[in-house]
Simulated assay, not measured.
Amino acid sequence: MINVLKYKRPSFWILVVGVITIIIISIGLISNSINKKSGNTGGFQKVKNFRKK
């Protein structure tokens, strides 16, 4: 209980590094790169073909 009373916010640079890391990971997950050589469409083509049947 005593540790809760002595809580300090993380330093400014730890917050900055955390936010930048989250932004980089988010951009990587949002950009769905399609490898045309291997025919990898990220599974969207399979769903599209399944719905046509």
Rank of each mutant, 00 (worst) to 15 (best):
M1W: 04
M1S: 06
M1P: 03
I2L: 09
I2G: 05
I2Y: 02
N3D: 12
N3Y: 03
N3C: 02
V4P: 02
V4T: 04
L5C: 08
Y7D: 03
Y7T: 02
Y7L: 04
R9S: 05
R9I: 02
S11R: 04
F12W: 14
F12H: 03
W13E: 09
I14E: 15
I14D: 14
L15A: 12
L15D: 15
L15T: 06
L15K: 11
V16Y: 10
V16N: 07
V16W: 10
V16M: 13
V16P: 02
V17F: 14
V17M: 12
G18I: 01
G18R: 00
V19P: 12
V19L: 15
I20T: 12
T21P: 10
T21S: 14
T21C: 14
I22T: 13
I22L: 15
I22C: 15
I23R: 00
I23Y: 06
I23W: 07
I23S: 10
I24S: 08
I24D: 01
I25C: 15
I25E: 13
S26L: 14
S26T: 12
I27S: 15
I27P: 03
I27G: 13
I27K: 06
G28Q: 05
G28L: 09
G28A: 05
G28P: 01
L29T: 08
L29N: 11
L29I: 09
I30P: 02
I30G: 14
I30A: 14
S31T: 14
S31Q: 05
S31M: 13
N32W: 06
N32T: 00
S33R: 01
I34D: 09
I34Q: 10
I34S: 07
N35P: 13
K36Q: 11
K36F: 04
K36I: 10
S38G: 05
S38A: 11
G39P: 13
N40E: 11
N40C: 07
N40Y: 08
T41E: 12
T41A: 11
T41F: 14
T41W: 14
G42L: 04
G43W: 06
F44R: 00
F44D: 07
F44G: 05
F44E: 07
Q45Y: 11
Q45H: 08
Q45E: 15
K46C: 02
K46Y: 11
K46I: 03
K46R: 03
V47M: 10
V47H: 05
V47L: 12
K48M: 09
K48E: 08
K48P: 02
K48F: 08
K48Q: 08
F50A: 07
F50E: 01
F50D: 01
R51E: 12
K52E: 11
K53T: 05
K53D: 09
K53P: 01
